[in-house]
Nucleic acid binder design. Structure first.
Lengths: 213, 213, 213, 213
DNA sequence: TATGAATGAGTATTCATTCAT
DNA sequence: GATGAATGAATACTCATTCAT
């Protein structure tokens, strides 16, 4: 009656295929962005196109699965860093991880930067990450590590901005984003520079504010 | 006595259509990125597909026209600011103009970020703008308005980065980019923060460094 | 009351434009074949596209006008040769003129070779030419200059065949068709070679035997 | 025990579709020439447009496949005939096969006649056929079966010419090409008719003599 | 369950033809 | 009458998705 005994070998193959698929898709989306074709992904995974659709009902679903994976990793990192003593260092470490993730994944930054591409699940995951980052930022502010007028939303958005700054030079120097991360961090620590204009509302969600169409 | 009297009557409609087209295309590219379809643009402009191609021989040409428009305005602004007494203010004004222009057209980011999307003319225009911005930056450094380790290339790239930071909130607050511009400016003025890592080579062009293939 | 007095200058321009148009179209069709665009023709003529359509209701009509011109010239030639003493020489001269006309005009041979491209008027003109060629051939047969089993239809069709034989080498040697004309003429003079199979019915029209569609 | 048992079931339909496609395309190209649309071909085959492109990556490839099929059959025939005792009969048999093949596919004429339409593979295949035909012709000349001043290139070109001669009557009498083949053969056997002018260079290739542009 | 062939809506682009000026 | 801008149907080709095997 346990399903482990009755499970046909098919099950094992399916699990294996799913793993192959996720790996291949992760790589393909990372290298080529969201416009990579399902055929390319299937080919990289060594399976047929139909198999991709058996595991993921649509390209959007597959993309979402991979984005959720990335977001989940980043969220774990952020949660861990919440425990750190030095909240300023923790924030810097989070941002480093975030920009690095973006720099390593073409599709990630396309999805993050364009709400229109986002699955509901992905939006929720971004929201959850945002909540933690809000805490992380609050702690850093409490410790005086970053200026008072910075919010968690700012930090989230800066990840995409820092990455985008570096994009045109990434071919030439794959680590160039560290330069712009540092520049941003310097800006975040400035005190006495006056208050930043246009403060985003606390807890702002990044999701699509208007219905598509 | 005005030159409008002598103009053939056709021109009036044509000019109007061209304007509709540029407006529609600018909006479409801004909202949807470079992958927006020519049909969509035609529809937004309220003209037939063929009309788009009468005005712009190819999608690339249309995109280039819009990019060149932006770049040309920006280059004029930069050139004017070269005459200003206060180089720090001049640089801030240039960046404001740059990000503002960018905020009106999201495709700009993609084109700047993807050499493969660039027309030769666009690359040249970016180069010309880059040269002036290099001067603008040099003057600001001489006057101590910005830190020593910042280059003109940094300034150019930051425009895209700042804009990208704001993109997800642009619907909610179309002026939110001012917030991230200020944050970046604050970072640019920091002194004694150590030297930025990964300095880009002086005079770096943003064009395709390697032949495609 | 004579129309020459009352005729506005427009009339003169129209006549001039029509001539320009016919010249340009003749050249364009000759060089590029029937697929040349109306724009190209208008441009060669130095007039606007609309003007082409004022003079010729459709591209087909324009093509027909030019084909009729060519056919008319060839028909005149054939008619003249009907008067010649030596019917064999006359036939050779006609065929020379015919193949030369084809070799000099890409569109002509496309139209001749494809009934589907033919206007009713063009078909009629081909019919008229065919009648004369039938006579020309009959006389040559009477004089023993060509074999008995050859018909006017054969002669008509051979023009296209001889030209087609030469086409692939026309770039290399623009007169190469003379080689294949000579070969065909040699075949036409053979006697005692038996009777040619599949004699075409006398007076066969080359027009489309089945309704288009 | 037959290999059909082991074949995946898909294959049956796919092979059938491919055959439908080749048949439809052959017919369509034959009737309409190379300018027939892929949609038309798909429709004739009773499949969707995408299916055509699954089987043949481009229109050129589809055309090439059909041309290569024809050329290959013809080359085999020619090679076999090289073994024949009577070289004159062999040459006649080759030409019969050639024109017959051509009569089943009008696009062949166009492809042969327009180097610009030719795939590299097609050019090579034409070259290979030409070499064999050169030998076939040489043998026929040695045996006195055809006149001395005829070359293999002539024979190759005559195939297209003979077919073209017959084209306008093919609807009426599908075997009419035999008439014009006979006429050409009679011309080829003539002796003492003088030398044909404009001899093509020995070994002349029919491929594009000058780079396009 | 896996396959990959078939589908058909979608893309950029061309061109004969129309019609407002 | 001449113009040339606008039209829209047509073309080759792509790709996410479906479904028979």
């Amino acid at each position: 009656m346990t399903d482990s005994a009755a499970a046909p070998q098919h099950r094992a193959d399916m699990v294996r295929n799913r793993r192959l698929l996720l790996t291949a898709a992760t790589e393909a989306f990372a290298e080529c962005g969201v416009d990579v074709s399902m055929s390319e992904i299937a080919q990289r995974a060594g399976v047929a196109k139909g198999t991709v659709f058996r595991h993921f009902a649509s390209k959007d679903d597959l993309l979402a699965a991979i984005m959720l994976q990335l977001l989940s990793g980043l969220t774990d990192t952020a949660a861990d860093l919440l425990e750190a003593e030095d909240a300023g260092t923790a924030l810097r470490q989070f941002m480093t991880a975030g920009v690095e993730a973006l720099a390593a994944d073409q599709a990630f930054c396309e999805v993050i930067g364009r709400p229109s591409l986002q699955h509901a699940e992905v939006r929720d995951a971004i929201g959850r990450l945002g909540d933690i980052v809000e805490d992380l930022t609050a702690r850093a502010k409490e410790q005086g590590a970053v200026r008072d007028d910075v919010t968690g939303t700012d930090i989230m958005l800066l990840l995409g901005g820092i990455h985008q700054t570096a994009v045109p030079l990434l071919d030439v120097d794959p680590q160039i984003w560290r330069r712009y991360l540092q520049l941003a961090l310097d800006g975040l620590c400035v005190t006495g520079a006056g208050t930043l204009p246009h403060a985003p509302q606390a807890g702002l969600r990044l999701d699509a504010p208007s219905p598509p169409g």
